[in-house]
Simulated scan of single mutants.
Amino acid sequence: MLNALEVITTVSVGLMVGVEFSVAFVMNRIFNALPEDSDQLARAHGGRMLGAVMPVWYIGSLVLTAAWAVIGWHQHGTGLVVTAGALLILSVIMSLLLLVPINNQGKTWTPENRPADWKEQMNRWDRYHYARVAVIVAAFTLLVTALV
């Protein structure tokens, strides 16, 4: 059972890292290159779509990591799993305090109602997102290391 939990947890966190990495380094660059209002419209749509899915994914990954740490408490690598869990907690805190407030505003914007500083707000969201990606990449790396 522990082996299955380890694999499911690692795959779940790995896929989450892949999505968030893609948003940071692929999708946002594509959006920034779109003409006229398309960038803002794409970000608003992405904020609505991923804003609905990612909270479940982050919390689910954290719960799986916690279960791995509890069930495998006396196994080799548990300290790495606990540290990965702490990093995932940090990523949730970062999300709630830094990214979600900006995302909640941005996902309602249209070209007609967006604030004048919308690009600055999106740039701030991007900077916070880069930091969060670094945190979840570190968590994923620790989980993979705990497997070997």
Rank of each mutant, 00 (worst) to 15 (best):
M1Q: 12
M1H: 11
M1W: 13
L2G: 06
N3H: 08
A4K: 05
E6R: 05
I8D: 07
T10L: 06
T10F: 05
V11L: 15
V13N: 02
V13W: 02
G14E: 11
M16L: 15
V17F: 05
G18T: 09
S22T: 10
V23E: 02
V23I: 13
V23Q: 07
A24D: 13
F25R: 06
V26M: 09
M27A: 12
N28G: 04
R29L: 15
F31M: 08
F31D: 02
N32L: 12
N32D: 15
N32R: 12
N32I: 04
L34G: 10
L34V: 07
P35D: 14
E36G: 05
D39T: 06
Q40A: 10
Q40V: 05
L41K: 10
A42H: 05
A42E: 04
R43Q: 15
A44S: 12
A44G: 06
H45A: 14
G47T: 00
G47I: 00
M49C: 10
M49D: 11
L50Q: 01
G51P: 02
G51H: 05
A52K: 14
V53I: 13
V53D: 09
M54S: 04
V56S: 09
W57R: 02
W57M: 07
W57K: 01
I59M: 11
I59H: 05
G60M: 07
L62I: 01
V63H: 04
L64D: 06
L64Q: 04
T65S: 11
T65M: 07
A69S: 13
V70G: 02
I71N: 00
I71A: 03
W73N: 03
H74G: 14
H74E: 15
H76M: 11
A84S: 13
G85S: 06
G85A: 09
G85R: 00
A86R: 05
I89A: 12
L90G: 08
L90I: 11
S91E: 06
S91D: 09
M94P: 02
M94S: 10
S95E: 13
S95I: 03
L96W: 12
L99Y: 01
V100S: 03
V100Q: 04
N103F: 02
Q105I: 02
Q105F: 00
Q105M: 11
G106M: 12
G106N: 09
T108G: 14
T110C: 13
T110I: 11
N113Q: 14
D117H: 05
K119G: 12
Q121P: 04
N123Q: 15
W125D: 01
W125Y: 09
D126E: 09
R127V: 15
R127P: 03
Y128P: 00
H129N: 13
Y130C: 11
V133D: 04
A134P: 00
V135L: 05
V135W: 01
V135A: 02
V137S: 00
V137M: 10
A139L: 07
F140W: 14
T141M: 10
L142H: 03
V144R: 02
T145F: 15
T145E: 09
T145Q: 12
T145A: 15
V148Y: 12
V148M: 10
